[in-house]
Amino acid sequence: EVKIALDTAPDLATSGSYNWAAAFGAALTEAGFEVREMPRGSVGNEAEMFDQVTTGLLEISLSDIRSVAQVDPFIYGIRLPYLFDDAAHMQRALQEGGVFERVNAALGTQEALLLAVVPLGPSSGIITTDTAVRSPADMASLRMRALDDAQIAMYEAWGSSGTIVPWGEVPAGLQTGVIDGYLNSPFVPIMFGQTDFVRNFSDAGVIIPARAVLASRQWYEELSDDERAAVDAAVEAADAATAAWLAEVAETSLTALEEAGVTVQRLTDEERDAFRERSLAVYDSDLMPSDDVARWQDIAAASR
């Protein structure tokens, strides 16, 4: 039995990772595997999903990037602002730049395997409560929810400010004004029912929000050659299905937001460049080793 631990509700309309999981599961079923989807949270939180993958109790997990980064922080490079032009570029870079080989060498000691990096949805924009954002200057008085040091540095480079608020307190924080917004995919406010108080979305296209598909190495290595080939093929099929879905929702995700009453700011390339140029400060901060940053820039350039 192949258990796939989901990270979102099983909703093909809004979840990129579920599109991946569904296509992967369908391909495996066709190849004769018995597949079982484990609902979000039913096998535990991120730390538990990772632990179960590494002990061979869970075959497939849709994990956060942090789960991989706690073994090899190099993967955090995919969160560098404006590193990739789009999701397709990111996938090319990961393949051609040898990222999977490098990360999997580190994950090997933990009996885990990175099968794929899956876009959660269209690229991240600026989600705010009251303020419509078209330029960094619009964010001067905003306090944004940040994930880590790098995001705080990025908001500061934009002339805004960041603060740490755990995801569980984000809805209350937005409603009471502890924070004025956060950065994520356009589907996120819809998925989490926040469109009553999130009033603005700006498609700044900062990063590709992504999940890491982890597999148990024990499970993977004990497969027969045929079975392993079927799994590899299922990964490719799932990647393709997610890419197709992503192309489809690039625009419809924005109209879905508008239907939910959220004002969408569609930025011009010039307006987006203003964010891009200021974001470069993050590359020079020492939050990530400069060798690693240079490596990521090379990888991205080579596959552009």
Binding site: D51, T54, T55, T109, D148
Partner: peptide
């Protein structure tokens, strides 16, 4: 003790390989 790999793969040994990213110390 771990399910496979005995003492080398117990909970504490697994946590030793993970780094808390905000503090940079082992979990």
């Amino acid at each position: 003790v771990g399910l496979r790999g005995g003492f080398a793969r117990g909970y504490l040994a697994r946590q030793a390989a993970l780094t808390m990213d905000t503090l940079g110390i082992a979990m």
